[in-house]
Amino acid sequence: MARYVKDLVLNKPEDFVTFIMNDYLQKNQFVVSEWKGEPAYRTGDALIEGYKYLKWSYENGTLHLEAWMKSTFGKEMGLDGFVGALQKKPYREGIEQLFHVLEQAIPEVGMNEMTGQQGMNGANGQPKSQPVPVKTVDNSGAATMALVFGILAFGISFLSPLLSIILAILGYSRARIGMQSALKGRAKAGRNFCIVAIVLSIILWVTNLVLTIMVR
Rank of each mutant, 00 (worst) to 15 (best):
L63Y: 02
A40N: 04
V17Y: 00
V148Y: 11
I95P: 08
E113T: 01
V196D: 09
G78T: 03
E59L: 14
P127F: 00
G84S: 06
Y41S: 05
L47D: 14
N192G: 06
I106G: 00
N112Q: 11
A143G: 07
W56A: 03
E113F: 00
I202Q: 10
V9P: 05
G122K: 00
L98Y: 02
G94Y: 03
M21V: 01
M1T: 12
I198K: 06
K70T: 14
K88S: 05
Y24E: 01
L63T: 02
R92Y: 10
E103I: 06
L8E: 06
G110S: 14
L167P: 06
P107F: 00
E76N: 10
L200T: 10
L170R: 14
G190Y: 04
I195T: 09
F73V: 15
S201R: 05
Y51V: 03
E113P: 01
G37I: 05
Q104Y: 04
L25R: 05
L183A: 15
L183C: 08
G119W: 03
F82A: 15
F193I: 03
Y91F: 15
C194H: 06
K27W: 04
R176T: 10
K6W: 05
G185K: 08
K36R: 15
K89T: 09
V199W: 10
S129K: 08
F73G: 10
G81W: 06
H64T: 10
D80M: 11
N28F: 09
V137C: 07
G110Y: 10
K184V: 09
P90F: 03
I106H: 00
T18I: 10
D138A: 08
E96S: 12
K55A: 09
Q126A: 08
P131S: 02
D23C: 04
T18E: 14
N124V: 05
W205P: 02
A143N: 06
F16T: 00
T72W: 11
P107E: 01
E34Y: 11
